[in-house]
Design a protein around this nucleic acid. Structure first.
Lengths: 411, 411
DNA sequence: AGGCTTTTTTTCGAGCCTCAAAAAAATAGT
DNA sequence: ACTATTTTTTTGAGGCTCGAAAAAAAGCCT
């Protein structure tokens, strides 16, 4: 149950605190770190001396030559890019991409591949993932021993411990324990993350002003996904990655959803649903894959003139609006980021969405709810995976007492 | 933002740990506490010596004469009932009740009053609350200075900091800062809690086996409310008490809800909605108050024979089922407690509820979702308020270093 | 140039806290 | 009465953080 704080935890946590302050701030001086963490100067000094000695941080002279102030100039502290590296693997529909990222967060290598995820047998899909990772790890420029973590992101449902893919729209396969598979193969700790959760993580790093403690990232693509940050914490279900916004019920017994059930939000707002509706296909028809180009053409048509295309987006907006309204009834309104190809058509969606949300309990302050759009989800997912892996390393490097990861080894 | 751990926090937190272990376990020995907190025996010994000396804990000889084990017998530690007292105030429809509770959780005095909450003007409503509290505090048997906290519970929406009632079905008044009012009047720290959240708190204390880390308490009464515990934490909205399950949208544009909007779950499952439907009154008709006795009669009629009454409960079950399904899509399934007068009619609700939930994403393991019922909400709310107040005191008594609250004062 | 200010960083002693091990206490069994 | 066993308390050592003071590294001023 609840566990007391041991004395040795103290240093461990405060080290984590310092590292995270540096990662957030970029090049803070010791004084700045003391201010943000609330710890004393002497503690910061001691901890940062340790971290520098262990090769985790480096002193980088000029924080900025701006504002030539009096007094001893501050010495900026930065993450040592060579302290470690992490690997991100993003698996999406017919597409696999891998990147190697240094400890400071810079991409130092990447590789991408097309493959037919929908029809690949289990062994082949896993094999492709392992192969692309292996190729990156064999890169002679890379010190394999420095790779401290692999974060894999996938469209679909993962378990709440970020170990396995439970279900995904990109393959008929289910329950693939990718984290275990990667760990067994390469001996590097790994996690399996939900794509929308990673989008949320990335948004917070990209724009901490707007996306701080409470916000929602919604993926408007073939399916509808959501990443939710509440009170500064990534929200996950109790068993799975949770946040299956797309499968909240919009109309009981309504349109057929890709998940096989009826009336889900996604069955009105997913790409296939918009397409189905615009083309006058029955709501009972099985979902079909619609390419991004087709969706863009559809949006263009809808913008051009009134007609079934525009009406389809309107219905999508309505479903999203009522869904958001129900969500807001539970968690209160928060800023929303719309991501994915249909986010580029948000102008077509927004009016109906706002109208719907205004009819719900969550829409009380309907006009204060703000939306932002980002048409391209893949870079976000990769960034999120990278930050996930890096912050894990931040809290791993210091954890087991004094185990040095880079630089000279330590007493 | 994130703040480092100061050295002095350590003792503070571990004291809290020990107190909370005693509150949970009843009469644990020092050894047991050491085991549950993970702290060393010497630390527990030191802390409990302090707490006993300060009059917060007492040694109570026989933990139990059961299992006469070898060795030095354990000495049970218990909360000293006289260490402090708290006051609970529960305001519900036409009813106000107050209780004084000792530090060990026993009710030592109470008082109840009927009043017309729906028509009382602001000053009068506040005045009644203050008056009843004042009477209790003037009780000559009570040492006023020992009253360390007031927790007030109310049906309706409170702010996320538990300071004010924002909106409530029991009065047309809004935005009453009860916590501030009580604090100003009596100089005792106070909070204003949402009733369903308190139900959840109470359920966890009553049955920690079943209601531990993830569960849902749903109030089926005039309105529909929810208290949610996720990952061991009481879930609240970002601004308000949140968890307005009753105002998730069941049917866009559907039946008229008490909140003035349309299609909310409550507009199908609240007492007034069941009544309206059973009586063949239009869904557009304004909600009316239905007495508990009438509801019990309605349920009896529905059990007796097929007819509009039974159908009304069926529709309520459907609304609750789809609502729960949407909720479970977000948070994954969890045990549910149904509380309130209509929980006594859960037999009429359950079949349709389960049928509906099975049609949703959250219903994947529909049969593993378990329901429990508890017809009487008031005792639960009071218990929850009491535990809320007491655990606050637990974390207040030790906080400012060594400020003694009871017993001899301390160096 | 040289001394003075200002600001940052390091150093040092003090005070706590926790831990592990040893000692003390209390009881059951022999 | 004595030993074994278990729980509780005591004691000494080691660490951590803090505050104050010292040291360091500039720019400013005469």
């Amino acid at each position: 149950m609840s566990v007391g704080i041991r004395h040795d935890d103290l240093r461990r946590r405060n080290r984590a605190m310092v590292i995270s302050a540096v990662r957030r701030a970029g090049q803070p001086s010791r004084t700045e770190i003391a201010a943000t963490t609330g710890l004393s100067h002497s503690t910061i000094s001691a901890i940062s001396a340790d971290l520098i000695q262990e090769g985790i941080l480096t002193e980088s002279k000029a924080s900025e030559p701006t504002a030539l102030k009096r007094g001893r100039p501050q010495i900026g502290l930065a993450l040592n890019p060579e302290a470690a590296a992490v690997l991100t693997v993003v698996l999406s529909l017919n597409f696999l991409s891998v990147a190697v990222i240094d400890y400071a967060g810079q991409v130092i290598a990447e590789e991408q591949r097309r493959l037919d995820t929908l029809v690949m047998p289990r062994d082949e899909l896993i094999g492709e993932c392992l192969a692309i990772v292996r190729r990156r790890l064999q890169d002679p420029d890379l010190d394999v021993s420095s790779v401290a973590r692999i974060a894999m992101g996938i469209q679909g449902i993962t378990d709440s411990h970020s170990r396995a893919m439970l279900w995904s729209p990109i393959t008929p396969l289910t329950d693939i324990p990718f984290a275990d598979i990667l760990e067994r193969e390469f001996g590097i700790p790994a996690t399996m993350e939900n794509d929308c959760n990673m989008m949320a993580v990335a948004l917070r790093w990209r724009d901490p002003e707007r996306y701080r403690d409470n916000f929602i990232a919604i993926l408007l693509s073939h399916g509808i996904g959501m990443g939710l940050v509440l009170k500064g914490e990534l929200f996950t279900g109790t068993h799975s990655s949770g946040g299956e916004f797309g499968h909240m019920i919009h109309r009981p017994g309504g349109a057929l959803c890709r998940c096989g059930r009826r009336g889900c939000v996604e069955a009105y707002a997913g790409n296939y649903a918009i397409w189905r509706s615009a083309m006058g296909i029955s709501e009972d028809a099985a979902p079909t894959d619609v390419g991004d180009a087709d969706m863009r053409a559809l949006a263009a048509k809808a913008r051009q003139e009134e007609g079934p295309e525009r009406e389809a987006y309107r219905r999508a907006g309505e479903a999203l609006g009522f869904g958001l309204g129900s969500l807001f009834a539970l968690i209160d309104p928060a800023p929303v980021a719309m991501v994915g190809v249909s986010a580029a058509a948000f102008d077509l969606i927004e009016p109906a969405l706002r109208e719907a949300i205004a009819q719900t309990a969550g829409g009380q302050h309907s006009n204060s709810i703000s939306f932002d759009t980002e048409p391209n989800e893949l870079p976000l997912i990769r960034e999120g995976c990278a930050m996930r892996a890096l912050t894990f390393v931040d809290q791993e490097i210091f954890a087991p007492g004094m185990q040095a990861r880079a630089g000279k080894h330590v007493a």
